[in-house]
Design a protein around this nucleic acid. Structure first.
Lengths: 227, 227
DNA sequence: GAAATAGTGTCTTTGAGACAATATATG
DNA sequence: CATATATTGTCTCAAAGACACTATTTC
């Protein structure tokens, strides 16, 4: 195990969210990729993707690199969640984990390397994970739901253009409740740019496509970022 | 310098807030204690109190211990702020700092050990600090102001009992604007327990004393805390 | 035209805030 | 009683939500 001269190891892990249909209800719901541990503490258990921080990379870079290496995913949004450093959280030495959380677009999520040791799970129905990772995912879910309520990050789950129905379905998937289409439109319309395109093909009035207002930053660069 | 086997040092620092009169306006405003650096990187500069994390203590314990050692203060509220880990933030090796922020009561703040190398400063008018500490204080101030708006932490600046005017002055000091006494009363009254005591002595109608609703937790135990 | 969703209009409720009015202490 | 703050009352405005209604496409 790598560790500091202090005898403390510094790790980075990431809770990666993508939206997929729920296995039972079929409704869109958050999923996360987990990695099966192949080394000693908690061997065989599912865990959050992560690894050690190297001296030449920032914490966010370490999170992004690790995410790419273990799942081949590039996140549309990445934000620091919390630093977990309780003494007994790893049975095998002292580990402080800086945990990030991320959102990936559905097209990106399909490319995710899935296999024997990497698999997606519905975030609200996880097996018993290694370390304190169950509690960490709970907290990340809480942060996702809270932040969707007061910011515009929900659109990180979508592509370049989208209909209001698609955006509403993202909110419904995250918040796990139905939203009124009429009221929803009024709430988000001001921060969206309408395009001239519409989506035809459905057996109903074709909806307009919208685009993100580019003046709104999607990536969280942390408190030190200059605006 | 202590550092990990990874070659990364793990530090803890704390932004400690107490309310005192502003040197110019005389109005109550947030102050923070700073420590003068007596060792090489940024020697002579003011910096946030902090130190290295030892393997036997949690991050929050390390913050509280360090706070006690350098300023002799016990916080009424302590919460993790952010983990700062940019590569170049210390000119002398790689340092990752887990930063906490704290609130202390006025009675406690008076006991603070002040001297040549420890001094209180108004948080909105600081000298050029060591490392990235100016930006960190900015962020802590932002967190304090934001959180006062949607939670009940403001009362961590007060003692056991207090009048509504005293509580309102805390909000006014943090938010830096006047609040209507009538509307303020209605907003906070539901979460306070009225006592039978009143404060006499002023040349006006004596105000009632209130107490915290004990069912509301003041200390932030982090996302892993079981409720 | 039937079905289905897109999109608009309107009413109610709720909370924040401005501000007037009344209450009760001290000197 | 004058003064000063405590405390209550009332009005306005804005946002959220419920829900009726109109629009436009495919089949």
């Amino acid at each position: 195990m790598e560790h500091t001269q202090q005898g403390i190891s510094l790790a980075v892990s990431t809770v990666i969210f993508a939206l997929r249909p729920h296995p039972e209800t079929g409704l869109s719901t958050p999923w996360i990729p987990l990695v099966r541990r192949i080394t000693k503490p908690y061997e065989g258990r599912w865990a959050l993707p992560g690894g050690w921080v190297s001296p030449e990379e920032s914490l966010a870079d370490a999170a992004a690199r690790n995410l790419l290496e273990t799942t081949a995913l590039k996140p549309a949004y990445l934000e620091q969640l919390y630093a977990f450093g309780e003494v007994g959280r790893s049975p095998d030495g002292r580990v402080v984990s800086i945990v990030y959380w991320a959102m990936v677009r559905p097209h990106e999520a399909e490319r995710a390397a899935e296999g024997e040791n990497v698999r997606w799970h519905p975030a609200d129905h996880l097996p018993k994970l290694a370390f304190d990772h169950n509690a960490i995912v709970e907290y990340a879910l809480w942060r996702l739901r809270t932040k969707v309520g007061y910011s515009r990050i929900a659109r990180a789950f979508l592509g370049e253009t989208f209909t209001l129905a698609e955006l509403r379905e993202v909110y419904e998937a995250v918040l796990q409740r139905q939203l009124d289409p009429a009221n929803f439109r009024r709430q988000v319309e001001g921060s969206l740019v309408p395009t001239e395109s519409r989506v035809s093909g459905g057996r109903h009035r074709p909806p307009r496509l919208y685009r993100h207002d580019e003046s709104i930053e999607l990536v969280d660069n942390g408190p030190l970022a200059s605006p």
